[in-house]
Amino acid sequence: MAYSITENCIGCTSCANLCPADAISGEKKKHHTIDSVYCIECGTCGRICPKNAVADPFGQVVKSEKRKYWKKPEFNHKKCSGCGICVDACPVGCIAFGQPDPKSKTAYPELINLNGCLSCGFCAGDCPVSAIVMAQPSDSQSEAA
């Protein structure tokens, strides 16, 4: 199962530049293709494509969205146990443990690179205790980023 690029592709390279698995190839201004062996189904290609030229594994066209509106993970540290599943799940290393809580000495995960986050939602999907929700960052966060 993998994403695929439709005939609407104009070869702008946006998807290939962002793909965290280096699964997309193609020359500039020519049709790009996704190698299903390497695709990790993060959907970044679809979100960034200005021509809505990407289909998900079920053949549905993915609607692109301005990157500043992409949802980012929000962490509920009351539910979180610090198990690190989300840190490992992030394909671009944008989640890391922050400073430990002074009392419990437990370090909780944080989004350390707002700009780098691809909004794949793997962190939220993999969290066994549903301590992460994907939400649109506030305007101030987006601007700061």
């Binding site: 610090g82 198990c83 690190g84 599943i85 443990f97 430990p100 419990s104 000495k105 437990t106």
Partner: peptide, 17 residues
Amino acid sequence: FTKCETVKFHCYSCPVG
């Protein structure tokens, strides 16, 4: 040992640490 401990270390997927 806990007096000089600065941060808990959790193995992957461990809720105890």
